[in-house]
Design a protein around this nucleic acid. Sequence first.
DNA 1: GTCTATACGCCGATAGAC
DNA 2: GTCTATCGGCGTATAGAC
Lengths: 204, 204
Amino acid sequence: MEQEIIEPEIEVIPPKSLSQDEVLQASLKLFAQKGYANTSLTDIKDAVGLKTTSGVYQYFKTKQAIAETLRENILDSLSISIDDIRRRNRKASEQLREIVDLLFKLTDEAPEIIRFLLFVKTEDFLPNAVPLMDSAAFNKIKRIIQNGIKEGEIKNIDYLLAYCYFFGIINQSLLMVLDGVLPKSADSYQSQAWLAAWGCIAKK
Amino acid sequence: MEQEIIEPEIEVIPPKSLSQDEVLQASLKLFAQKGYANTSLTDIKDAVGLKTTSGVYQYFKTKQAIAETLRENILDSLSISIDDIRRRNRKASEQLREIVDLLFKLTDEAPEIIRFLLFVKTEDFLPNAVPLMDSAAFNKIKRIIQNGIKEGEIKNIDYLLAYCYFFGIINQSLLMVLDGVLPKSADSYQSQAWLAAWGCIAKK
DNA sequence: GTCTATACGCCGATAGAC
DNA sequence: GTCTATCGGCGTATAGAC
């Protein structure tokens, strides 16, 4: 008669079914805060609520593999977002504007992601990882700029220089927000940063 | 009969009077290339030509102390250079122009220094170091910008934003040169980068 | 004042009990 | 499938011989 009661036992309060994703999220925050080398598996295990580091190895064979997966996930989702942006907008100015939107929003809402991209030097510990600038996501950004040049929206300069000036301003803004040098939320600086960055490369 | 061969071992060629500065120079290169955490005292000892790490401790008590001294030296000499630049020029545009000159020249001639400034996150291992933006050198740069705003040379915006836009472009240019993304020497990009950066913050 | 030897902790990783 | 126990290695740092 009480056999049905067996069911609710399936984790009433803490599901505690530790998932691979919990490890990834915890590691992302730690790597973003302290850097890869200064983050030990002990730190990760603590952040996730495990008792020993052995548990972590259930999901990832090595510490490197965690960082690798993290990087792939971030770059993949960035790439997908950019695809979406390109689908919804035709002009380079609109596409870049939406990419800036995304980056500033992430800086406020998921700063670990931007920290990871801006601060964590993956080439230091992932020797054969694709350089950021050669990843799918960044290739798409470069293509947007090249198209903008071709269409006459962007000055006729080396597209790498256009990238450099535009994202120089954008990245430095995000960086100074994350470092607390610019004291307000990223959102507060977005429109001005966009104007400065776009004004740098826009034709005429 | 072959006993005389023992003698030449007294190092005829390399005087090998090891100086503190040799350790600093070697460490600077290593830190700039591989990062602080990935550089061991064994690496430093090898780069300097010592047989054991003990020799390094003759000049510095800890590995941290090496990085600390290095940072102080670099920031001090930067600060001195900026003093000199301010003495020789009155207008903010001229002063900034010469600072850009200096940074690009260093990128070509002593890339380790710029690498150390741009890439090595000293706050990760020097907990109580003064933040870059609060160092004497950077305070002088901020003052130059504030003066430029007061004199009407630079747009009337928050001086931190002016700093952000200007050095966003300059630093990104140096960074992309150091990463090899921009394939030529820093010198090749200097005048264009200056024009873009100054155009961003110049009045009118 | 430079090398020998070594202490000692932390880290990443593994084997195996339950 | 999670915890116990532990290994081997490297990294910083020290004590002391020469």
